[in-house]
Design a protein around this nucleic acid. Structure first.
Lengths: 210, 210
DNA sequence: ATACCGTACAATGTTAACAATTAACACCAA
DNA sequence: TTGGTGTTAATTGTTAACATTGTACGGTAT
């Protein structure tokens, strides 16, 4: 069975290594807007903040650069990347829809109870976030829900590209103020999925992504 | 001006850091099929082969995992990923066409002489590879040519996702035996591009990607 | 005043030692 | 035989010291 790089984050398990914890923490901070776009991140500063050495922080910088959040310059460190412009944003959304559609159509027949359970718990976490009403957390859970579907449908080959696209989008996450509606929309994705109704799932997903 | 992570590889400059050299070397080896799909790569082994410490090799593993070549498991190291199945392959090709089309249509008007020169030298290197007739090198130069176009057209926001898609495709690069034809096809992409004829460039690109 | 150069400092890059984890194997008991 | 357990070797994870690079600042000559 293929291995999921971010399974710890996705399944909300305690990350095994310091590197994973640091990476997750910095990613969350980036999505929460704690770091200003264009600003530089210092290895030493973050290392001391987390109480670890520079090694894992370096690893996290490399990974987050590849995920699209940070820009890396040799001997000069990393800077926070800016969100995409509206034109690219529209295009990225279109590609995202295609990828999710492709993976769902292909993977729905092979869904297992276990993988569906992971999707369901992702939905639960989204609900908790919506109840709390904290926008940045909702954004995170939103993406994680979609990610859990891709994983459940065996879309490992697409996951990397999909994450690249989503990471940039997340930096300008905007949604209805109506958080209950946000949850309902995703619930209406899960329902047909759990019935292995690929066509309806795709329709709900395409309507959701915008 | 945004920074290009792989510019050293793209411009065929001497990589500045050991990490970049190691990353490039391992990537080339992967594309040459030196490492069998599914096999494990050992930090110590590669470090001693390159005559460096494990640090840069670790960094390279993280990066190549994020690029889609390797699969990473905590405390267990990395394995070489398998190429995508035909179904996914077709889909990936379709998305690749869309991305390149989008970036070219948007970026052609803003092309500079300098950026065009980078594309031209990428084309030159492809020609050298075609003359030599070594398939793996041609595959590499082929992708680098397309990448240089994306960079020239300012497609930084798409580059990460595009690379994710291409990296997997490269693991099963197959092309005409007629290497001269391969070069000519790419020459016919460059010509309209250098004239800032976006429409013809896109047509040539779409015909080329398969 | 301005341009140039050299020095000092602060940051990243690299290394090697040490810690923690994993997997394999031998061993023992039921 | 089988199932579990402890040991051991191999590998990755982490750290801290050291090396190198890049930037900023101040002095000097023009």
């Amino acid at each position: 069975m293929p291995f999921q790089i971010y399974s710890d984050r996705l399944m909300r398990m305690q990350p095994k290594t310091v590197r994973e914890q640091v990476t997750n923490q910095i990613r969350d901070d980036l999505l929460s807007g704690r770091f200003e776009a264009g600003s530089m991140l210092r290895e030493i500063e973050l290392a001391s903040r987390f109480g670890v050495s520079r090694g894992p922080v370096r690893d996290a910088f490399i990974q987050l650069s590849n995920e699209g959040y940070l820009a890396y310059q040799a001997n000069r460190g990393v800077t926070v990347r800016r969100p995409p412009n509206p034109d690219d944003r529209r295009f990225i959304t279109s590609v995202r829809k295609q990828i999710e559609t492709h993976v769902i159509l292909k993977g729905t027949p092979h869904l297992t109870d276990n993988s569906l359970k992971n999707v369901e718990s992702a939905l639960d976490r989204l609900k908790v976030a919506c109840d709390e009403g904290k926008a940045t957390t909702i954004a995170l859970r939103d993406v994680e829900f979609h990610e859990s579907i891709l994983v459940a449908c065996g879309g490992d080959d697409m996951l990397g590209a999909w994450r690249q696209l989503c990471s940039r989008m997340l930096l300008t996450y905007t949604r209805h103020q109506d958080y209950a509606h946000t949850y309902r929309e995703h619930f209406e994705i899960f329902t047909p999925l759990s019935n292995k109704d690929a066509q309806s799932t795709v329709e709900a997903i395409v309507a959701n992504i915008q």
